[in-house]
Write a protein that binds this DNA or RNA. Structure first.
Lengths: 354, 354
DNA sequence: TTGAAAGCGCTAACAA
DNA sequence: TTGTTAGCGCTTTCAA
């Protein structure tokens, strides 16, 4: 690996000049520039990113914290993040917290500000204090899928109106004529999916439909979790005509449960989820769901992070003091609204049809 | 962010001493060590990884090149890589080549040797010349899932006997009594899955079962690809009793095709895949498949890469000249054999049963 | 338009 | 046991 000064020597200039032509800084004579470019080509020179990071006081990488890249939603999101980052000249370090706040903290402590210039947080179950602390230390943090646009957290975030998503799901079921409805909601402890559930319940209530306690199950965000919950629910309430799941994976699990219970979907039972992961399209029957703007949110998150990284340093101080400096980017960005995607897993309940 | 010398100043020593206590190098007096540790704690000091990388001439990150993190196999693999890397103190930069060799090259040129100390290649459709070049430049490269243990490439790799996987799949179908078999094989152009197919065909042939050209389709490694191929095949050969797919995703697609064609799986049609991705367990019916040691391969790949990174520099030269230096790690590692996992998508064909 | 020089934060000989 | 001294490869004033 050749270095700047080797290139400089070959071109008969100093490294400062080489640096200037490579970054289009300063004025460099055409003839000199050409000599430098030739030397760069001849030596196959490539800038040493770690060295540059040190000199600039800014690394070209961002950290993406996820709880487990194996959940099929995260790769889709990560893909979008990677694209957007790449376009802005940055690399993505993938940090699996594995739902463990301690693992998350370890990651933050090690790389925030030293190896990566910013961190994106995607449902990684991190300690908010840790996050605030890394922000206070000068490394921007962006939450990627905040579920309540109207109730922003104390950190910059991209918000998606998941309440609305729950509402849309409810309306769809109601319009089809369902009244015997049960719900499977993401793990209670994390309080995750609360907004989705609220939206769902409120829309039902507005239509005069009640959702008794016994019609609701909390389940892990997996196919198996949804499967188990759906079985319980269906056995407890055989008259059920529709299942709402606050996420696609449990919705898919519900379809499997119906299959095992010899209930035809959608003829005997409608199932609806939220998110629209790729699998939703590929299940049998394909899943009706409420699509969430994943790619858009990823792009917004990267661009917000970018702005936070690139803003002049004094504004950091202001942010830390609570106020917002003159040109500081707004700390909450709202992605477009979720939209209903009707596929094959929902239809009118039997007794109402034909 | 405080620096080493700030810590040093506070502890009344020089930065060299602080460095020594932090890395357990050199002998440091107990009393001094304690003072340093106190100062570190008081200042909340954390080492600057980019600076360290520069000084050591070695970055703590490795690059993971994948064609698209969205294919459900890759996240599972990436997860295992990340774990293994984390344990050896390294971070993973995720590089999506999106099947584009140019994108791959761009990644390699930018980060190999400057931001990451090694690269792991997972079916990223990279140009072999590019890979050899980055190796020649001194950055170790490891291929993660080489399909032919007996026919190693010119690069270090972890090999999995996919020929054997194909063979196991064939034997399973044969033992069940299937003779009307069709095959769906990964995209021809990339020559990928060739070993699996060979193993499959050879095992059939050894049993006196032929696989005519018209019984084989090449398809992209997706559910949709498998779906389309299976439909064609089943329409062309209605007497088919079993489908072999060289990967799980197309196998899942085949199950969907059977569903749409009103063919019961496994009663009317058996389906078998290769890999055993998580989804295989979660489909209806659950997919019979040949499990490939993903996690083991990931761990082997990371540890091979690690050894390559840590070997003394002179051996690089030797490797480049074709020979192998005295203590250079073997460049091919073979993971354990694939194993058949029988689930619900295969059974004896109708006419043979009972 | 170009060069000289300092320094980013850390490591690693080597001296003391 | 600790300090001194050079860098690692690059960027960035400031002078020339």
């Amino acid at each position: 690996m050749s270095t700047l000064s080797e290139v400089a020597a070959r071109a008969g200039v100093t490294s400062a000049t080489v640096s200037n032509v490579l970054r289009n800084r300063g004025r460099v004579g055409d003839e000199t520039r050409q000599r430098v470019l030739d030397a760069v080509a001849a030596l196959g020179y490539r800038p040493h990113l770690a060295a540059r990071a040190l000199a600039e006081g800014r690394a070209p990488t961002i950290a993406l914290m996820v709880s487990s890249i194996a959940n099929p939603f995260y790769p889709e999101f990560a893909l979008a993040v990677e694209r957007a980052a790449r376009i802005s000249g940055r690399f993505v370090i993938i940090c699996n917290t594995n739902q463990d706040p301690l693992a998350g903290r370890a990651y933050l402590e090690q790389i925030a500000g030293t190896l990566s210039e910013g961190v994106l947080v995607m449902n990684a179950n991190l300690d908010f204090d840790d996050l605030h602390q890394t922000e206070a230390r000068g490394t921007p943090v962006v939450l990627c899928m905040w579920e309540r646009p109207l109730d922003p957290p104390g950190l910059p975030c991209v918000a998606v109106d998941f309440r609305r998503a729950g509402e849309l799901a409810a309306r769809h079921l109601l319009e089809l004529g369902h009244r015997q409805i049960v719900a499977i909601v993401g793990s209670k402890r994390a309080g995750i999916h609360a907004a989705r559930y609220e939206g769902f319940v409120d829309a039902l209530r507005a239509a005069g439909v009640k959702l008794p306690r016994t019609c609701v199950r909390h389940a892990p965000d997996t196919i198996e979790g949804g499967y188990a919950a759906a079985r319980e629910l269906l056995e407890l309430h055989p008259a059920t005509t529709a299942i709402f799941a606050s996420n696609d994976l449990p919705a898919l699990g519900s379809i499997h449960a119906a299959f095992d219970l010899r209930r035809d979907v959608p003829a005997d039972l409608s199932v609806i989820g939220i998110t629209d992961i790729q699998l939703a399209r590929q299940s049998r029957p394909p899943l009706t769901t409420v699509q969430v703007p994943t790619v858009e949110a990823a792009e917004m998150a990267v661009s917000l992070l970018r702005e936070l990284i690139e803003r002049p340093p004094h504004t950091h101080q202001a942010a830390r003091r609570g106020g917002r400096a003159a040109h500081e980017p707004p700390r909450v960005r709202v992605a477009s609204e979720p939209t209903l995607i009707v596929r094959g897993s929902t239809s009118a309940p039997r007794r109402v049809r034909g």
